[in-house]
Design a protein around this nucleic acid. Structure first.
Lengths: 69, 69
DNA sequence: TCAAAAAGGGCATTATAATGCACTATCTAT
DNA sequence: ATAGATAGTGCATTATAATGCCCTTTTTGA
């Protein structure tokens, strides 16, 4: 269901040359959690998402949908 | 912690003239869940957030942080 | 090649989000 | 002012996210 989310995280992580282990440690989330997330499994809380996003220099935003797609 | 998130949801909901009961029903989440979320309590999953965002014509996005704030 | 590193997954446990219920507080029209 | 509608909260329960352990698969550098 959140395949795109995991894909985004994985791509950004690779772009920064971080391993899953690096990112998980830096973000303060369990490696197992990050692994699952990246392959699109699970339904992360925004806490988890934000901790990871922080390290990736990204942010979770809630915004009005742009017209069209 | 997610005070801003709840505030955003509440503002958008009022803008659309929906009650918490309306929104919760339309989004398919428990009223209790929405209430807590709007006052900044809890740590919603992105599923919950997305269901609510959908009804509000909003979306949860993960994007690279803009330079500065 | 092939050994080490990195990624992916099964499963049990723990922490906590989601929910229901019942109540109180606040807002809103009359 | 006051009744009904809407919003906020405490607490117990249920569903599930987060985690740890351990093993398999895939990738990568020498």
């Amino acid at each position: 269901m959140h395949y795109l989310l995991g894909k985004t995280i994985k791509e950004r992580r690779n772009m920064l040359h971080l391993t899953q282990e690096d990112l998980a440690a830096m973000a303060g989330v369990a490696l197992r959690t990050l692994k699952s997330l990246e392959v699109g499994k699970g339904n992360p809380s925004i806490n988890t998402l934000q901790k990871i996003s922080e390290v990736l220099g990204m942010e979770v935003r809630l915004e009005v949908r742009k017209l069209d797609n």
